[in-house]
Design a protein around this nucleic acid. Structure first.
Lengths: 258, 258
DNA sequence: CCCATAGAGTGTATTTTTGCACTTAATTAC
DNA sequence: GTAATTAAGTGCAAAAATACACTCTATGGG
């Protein structure tokens, strides 16, 4: 997590962030329109208003511009709002508002996606046909998850390997990904928010189902170790309304919680 | 006349011109809104997106930002269009299209005035209350005329002291100034184009009046002319000419000049 | 009166951007 | 096949922008 994600920075910092985001926006737009090899770096620079030399000061290669920079995935204002949500709870404890704020974060990020809906559909279509780009994206996803974990841990004042942080990153990340896939699929007419809330509700239903660790069996015995750890976590957050329900489902039997 | 008025220039040149114009636009806007001393250089820089040090790299003092730079008074695209109009005639001769193109230039420049109409009215009001600014403006006007003369001479391929160039600069400049004064006066409801064309027609009527050089005589005879001017102005309002008529009137005086 | 502050303006060092020449690899033309 | 061209990418120097500390002047408060 760089300073730019939290600190306002000076004029230099701000201009640099704006330039970087502009390059990425143009690169993605042209990729959606013409494919990865249908435009030159020169054209990106023209539209972004920079020199080619500057382009390579920002990104090591053409493809990296499309991937963008991890800081651009978490715009400052959105991050600030998310971080502010954890201010009311003591450090070291998972805040009551975490799940609600994660959902809002997901919605905010979706709103701020550069490019129109149609453009994003086309960009996704193009990317699926470029294997080197797919590999790069998979690599970049891990970096984004790490950044997200750092952000989340900082908000809650817990280590980045805290079970709730780990689960939140993986599960909310996958829910967002699945929601996007459905939203951008052919023929979709529903709003992203609609679909996201449906998926969140489904996840909450899933993790509220009855679950007895003792019935997990031999192989599941290994799985009982995580359950024990998660059990202690759920106790610490058992006073939380909506968040506690999710957490207890992960860690302990819902019967016990009930 | 700098290169930037004609040549496209590189990215540096283009960005510099844009920055300079942005500074002037912001300074004028804030002056209109709050008066000359109602805002700081810091505020201009914030809105223009530059550092204060850069502001003083561009303008020697706060007031100079309001006056702007002479190149900004003749935007590149407008100048290019004006210059292209002289391409069809042999160098050294005054082109048929000169008067029409000068009128269009005036209209183009009026269109490109930064700030809204109301803002410009307020800016003019503020400037009238600042004597040092008025003095500066008078000085800057001479520089603009010189620039205009260079532009015009270059277009026609004649020296800057050519009689038609000299007269065009002074007369068209004053017509534009007078038109602006009327346009920005209290209670005006007419368009700038309307008023400008009226004044041009009046000037054409004036210079189409019978004139016998041998009767030019001493100074007293010249003083009787102003009365004749006003009566011919009211006649010309009712008969705005077409473009071809405009051109034919222009070629006659230029032959007389030769 | 003196002192503090705000704002305009200056000097200098550092950072960033641009321009330009070059290299490399791929593609196109003959 | 060879040669030319195009596009991605690199190194280096100059230009431009920023950051920061400073000066000077005007203004307001005690």
């Amino acid at each position: 997590m760089g300073n730019s994600a939290i600190n306002e920075g000076g004029l230099r910092e701000r201009k640099r962030a704006a330039t970087r985001a502009a390059i990425t926006a143009v690169a993605r737009s042209l990729t959606a329109e013409r494919g990865l090899n249908g435009y030159t770096v020169e054209e990106v620079c023209e539209q972004a208003g920079i020199s080619r030399r500057t382009f390579f000061n920002y990104f090591p290669a053409k493809e990296d511009a499309i991937l963008g920079h991890v800081d651009d995935d978490f715009p400052e204002e959105v991050v600030e709002r998310f971080m502010a949500g954890g201010a009311g709870s003591p450090a070291g404890e998972i805040s009551d508002s975490l799940l609600a704020d994660l959902v809002r974060l997901s919605l905010d990020l979706a709103e701020r996606m550069s490019g129109s809906e149609e453009e994003t559909r086309q960009l996704i279509g193009v990317i699926k046909k470029e294997p080197q780009l797919m590999l790069r994206i998979i690599g970049a996803s891990e970096e984004r998850e790490a950044e997200f974990a750092r952000l989340l841990a900082a908000r809650e004042g817990v280590p980045t390997d805290h079970p709730v942080v780990r689960m939140a990153v993986v599960l909310l990340g996958n829910i967002a990904r699945k929601t996007s896939a459905g939203y951008f699929s052919e023929g979709n007419t529903r709003t992203y928010e609609d679909m996201l809330l449906e998926n969140i509700a489904a996840a909450r239903t899933l993790f509220a189902l009855p679950f007895d660790p003792s019935r997990a069996g031999p192989t599941p015995l290994n799985m009982s170790r995580p359950d024990i750890q998660q059990s202690s976590t759920s106790q610490s957050s058992s006073s939380l309304p909506s968040s506690s329900q999710t957490n207890s489902s992960q860690s302990t039997p819902s019967e016990g919680a009930q």
